[in-house]
Amino acid sequence: MFTAEHFLTVAISVGLCLGCAAAANAADLPGLGKPISEAELALWDISIGPDGKGLPPGSGTAAQGAAIYAQKCEACHGKDGHDGSNSVLINAPGKSGRTMALYVPNSTTIFDFVRRAMPWPQPKSLTNDEVYALTAYILAGNKIIGENDAMNAETLPKVQMPNRNAFVSRYPDKH
């Protein structure tokens, strides 16, 4: 008989198991995952939190970024960040379109996306200094930071994004 009391016991033991079991001592599980250290998977662990957690060492300015942009980004995104075949990154003078930097709530998203996905033909080929410089170039072009502000693990998370208060989470409630 599967009583309510029995069910409670099972629920508690599952809870404990999730809380504390490691592969080696979970006798009823296959245990075929191999233990790995965070150091061994460091090259894969490229995600960055909105608080800047995970940002690597390095630094870059908008001027440094402009040179890299012209070489590696302009072909798709256009000269000075606009009028290319792909997304406008910096509005043309007199334009006020919704660019990535004017829309996303956190500056870290720009660094994270450029590092993991750009440039489109050779993602993950940029150095961390280059990614910081391109992030600075995009932020300065959108007038979110000053032309001479260096972006690094300390300064980037502190950048106040203009659209940060527009977002409303629908999880877990509807809105």
Partner: peptide, 26 residues
């Protein structure tokens, strides 16, 4: 906390009346 990936900030967020932007609409 969510990492605020490009696909949950720039994309897959929805501008609605308010104006506001719905995020984490699963």
């Amino acid at each position: 906390e969510p990492v605020m990936a490009i696909n949950e900030t720039l994309q897959y967020t929805y501008r609605v009346a308010g104006p506001k932007i719905w995020q984490f609409f699963f």
